[in-house]
């Protein structure tokens, strides 16, 4: 069975187009989440989309376009670095806010706990 009839460069370009569009969409959606969500703790989740889906998909798309293996290795390094540090940074921000006394909105009514009587 021969696969010579497949234009591999075209397949690669289509695949990176797909990943780039998906990743760009995820980055924009994450930023929209940061702007639109009502309180600080829910905004963290918007940043989560940018950091995971957005960043990794765009890096994967760049990997497919890498002209040589040094570039590929650097992209793998960036992907691993994002995967290891972005949750640490998000947790550090959330934990710092929690320690200072921020309380999240809770429940579908989006009320701060303890604010009912005010």
């Amino acid at each position: 069975m021969s696969l010579d009839f497949i234009d591999w460069a075209l397949v690669r370009d289509l695949l990176s187009w797909f990943l780039f569009l998906l990743g760009s969409a995820a980055v924009v959606i994450g930023a929209l989440g940061i702007v639109r969500f009502p309180d600080f703790f829910s905004r963290l989740h918007g940043a989560g989309i940018t950091d995971t889906a957005g960043a990794e998909l765009i890096v994967f798309a760049m990997m497919l376009q890498a002209p040589n293996w040094i570039v590929l290795a650097k992209l793998i390094f960036i992907a691993a670095f994002f995967g290891l540090t972005s949750p640490v940074a998000t947790h550090a921000i959330a934990h710092a806010a929690w320690m200072v006394g921020f309380k999240p909105m809770q429940g579908a009514a989006l009320r701060y706990k303890g604010d009912e009587g005010e």
Binding site: F41, L44, H45, G48, I49, D51, P87, T90, H91, A94
Partner: peptide
């Protein structure tokens, strides 16, 4: 803890 944070929609706070 990082896996929870990495999954969007859940964030480890403490």
């Amino acid at each position: 803890g990082n896996s929870i944070t990495l999954t969007p929609g859940t964030v480890t706070i403490d």
